[in-house]
Amino acid sequence: MVITMNRIEERLQQVKEKNEKAFITYMTAGLPDMQGCAELVKAQADAGIDVVELGIPFSDPVADGPVIQAASYKSIQQGTNLRKVFEMVEGIRTDGCQVPLVFMMYFNTVLHYGLEAFVERCAKVGVDGLIIPDLPFEEQKQLQDVIDRVAGAPILIQLVTPVSGDRIPMLLENARGFVYCVSSMGVTGQAADFHKNVVNYLQQVKDVSKIPVMMGFGIRTAADVIPMKDIIDGCIVGSHFINLMEENNYSTEAAKEYVSTFKKEMNA
């Protein structure tokens, strides 16, 4: 297995060298439509986003709260599927946009596409990472084996939660890209009432992690993460970003404004 740096690792390395914090957004693929979604990815890249997470809509998103559930449902109704999202990514890359892209998806979508075919297609079109919330560490081997065989395959991002406790060293031992640090219990998109001991917990993860630690779940503005700024390497905004896009009719200007403001305030 030859480990070459992929776009996520390269970008986060650059952010670190600039002594800055990274910013990641999540959006449901296919909204407002395929074309509009591609435009939003490129607009965010122009505004300085570090990584874009694209949610592949699934009928049964058990790890997601109401906002992403509704977005997923809407996107499926519009006919979004994995094949179309791959085509969209191909288009984004053809247009010269090199922003690191992560698919957030449920394992059934991968299984249904076929593990080999899926990983190969990711490598070919330029998907850099995968977040699969219903594929915990113990179930990853089958997919990881395929990833290890395919050149340019995406990184399987590890999630850590406030109740991971003694599992943390195991989860992080071979983790690559970044650690997705779930900051509150339950599902995506809850208010920023972070888990009681969130600072201690983030510190515990940071102490063990050899790679950047990104905090996610329930974040809206840079102010939400500034108290943890000295510990984490960046953060992820999902449900709030989707709400914002809904309110602003998926305007690329609104997306740019949000991303550049967040980055500026977080790094002020």
């Binding site: 394992f107 219903d134 560490f137 113990e138 939660t161 989860l171 779930v182």
Partner: peptide, 20 residues
């Protein structure tokens, strides 16, 4: 993991939050 499966079926396809 052997006792978590029935052949290729079964397992624990849940969020990390639930593993402990």
């Amino acid at each position: 993991m052997s006792n978590k499966y029935y052949g290729e079926f079964g397992g624990q396809y849940v969020a990390e939050t639930l593993m402990n």
